[in-house]
C-alpha cells in the first residue's frame, strides 16, 4: 500500500464514502427506495439523490477553492447541508 501514498484526510474521505455506500445498501435492503419527485426537476431514488448530493458537493468545493479565499471547511460545511437537503427534500 506504500505506493498509493495514503494520507490521513484521503483515507478518512474514502472510508466515509465506503461507509455511506454500505449504509445505503443496508437501508435499501430494509426498506426499498421509491422513486419520487422533490424540488429537483427529475424523479429520483435515494441513490440518485446521494449521487447528486456528492457531485454537487465536489463542485461546491471546487468553487470555494477556485473562486474564493475561504477556508475549505466552509465548503465542507455547506456541502453537508446541501447533501442533507437533497437527500430529504430533493
Amino acid at each position: 500500500m506504500e505506493w498509493m501514498s495514503w494520507t490521513l484526510p484521503t483515507a478518512i474521505f474514502f472510508a466515509s464514502i465506503a461507509a455511506i455506500l454500505v449504509a445505503m445498501t443496508a437501508w435499501e435492503l430494509r426498506s426499498a427506495s421509491i422513486e419520487r419527485r422533490g424540488f429537483l426537476p427529475i424523479a429520483t431514488t435515494r441513490g440518485d439523490r446521494l449521487f447528486i448530493g456528492l457531485l454537487g458537493s465536489a463542485y461546491l468545493h471546487l468553487l470555494v477553492i477556485g473562486a474564493t479565499s475561504w477556508n475549505i471547511w466552509v465548503a465542507s460545511g455547506l456541502s453537508l447541508v446541501w447533501l442533507l437537503v437533497v437527500m430529504r427534500w430533493g
Binding site: W3, M4, S5, F13
Partner: peptide, 25 residues
C-alpha cells in the same frame, strides 16, 4: 484513489512527501 492521494501532497520520492491540502487544486 492513488490520484486523489497524489493531489493533496507534494511528492519527491517515497520517503519525502508533504501534505499540502487544497493548494494544487
Amino acid at each position: 484513489m492513488t490520484v486523489v492521494n497524489y493531489s493533496v501532497q507534494d511528492i519527491f520520492d517515497q520517503s519525502s512527501r508533504y501534505f499540502v491540502g487544497a493548494d494544487w487544486f
